[in-house]
């Protein structure tokens, strides 16, 4: 049980996918303008991460590893993720049309969100079990959610701030992102010591 809690805390805080591993920066900068869409996007990404891990882990264990085809991982995983995102799109369009409209182009772009592929590949690299992989995917998704929500708040303040003209827009956003990222350095070592 302890190991699951540790994986979860690691994924959310110390090894935050966006702010510590710098994966999934595209939606982090693209959809973080408003808190509502940022939350919706993060939940969609979390869902895709967990589903992708649930689907790719058995494929890898049953089909690829026994035949020595590990080099196919990236191709096969992207294929599965793309299929899942398409499925999610159809489901959202049917059941949550407002969120579907708000996410727009960023919804199909989850396919190419490197955080999703990243969590799937890193799970295998860390040699997690199936359950541990799922918890890690959930932790990565929640970490993504935390980063998005925090940064959406920062950006909403940035809108009204008096910034030098040369830094307005993307430069200020990137500077703010680096500051938020630096603040996450403070969590280093917390997961190991919390459960020691």
């Amino acid at each position: 049980m302890k190991i699951f809690a540790m994986i979860l805390i690691t994924g959310i805080l110390t090894q935050n996918f966006v702010l510590s591993r710098f994966l999934g920066i595209c939606p982090f900068l693209g959809v973080s303008k408003k808190l509502g869409t940022a939350t919706g996007m993060s939940i969609a990404v979390t869902l895709v991460m967990v589903l992708a891990t649930a689907a790719t882990y058995p494929i890898n264990a049953a089909l690829l590893v026994p035949r020595g085809l590990e080099y196919l991982q990236t191709v096969v995983f992207i294929l599965v993720i793309a299929g899942l995102v398409q499925l999610l799109e159809v489901v959202l369009k049917r059941f949550v049309p407002p969120l579907y409209n708000a996410l727009g182009i960023y919804l199909p772009l989850i396919t190419t969100n490197c955080a999703v592929l990243g969590v799937v590949l890193l799970n295998l690299q860390a040699e997690y079990s199936y359950a541990q992989s799922l918890v890690n995917a959930l932790g990565a998704g929640l970490g993504f959610l935390l980063a998005m929500v925090l940064f959406a708040g920062v950006r909403e303040r940035l809108e009204g701030a008096d910034i030098p003209k040369a830094l307005k827009g993307l430069p200020a956003t990137l500077a703010a992102a680096s500051l938020v990222s630096m603040s996450f350095l403070g969590f280093a070592g917390i997961a190991e010591n919390l459960f020691a």
């Binding site: 085809l69 299929g83 159809v90």
Partner: peptide, 27 residues
Amino acid sequence: LLPSLIVGAIALILGVGLSFASEKLAV
């Protein structure tokens, strides 16, 4: 042949599943 078959089979399953889903869940 084997890798092609594996990737092809996964793509086929996903494709059939998706077209089925879009039919079932069509707005």
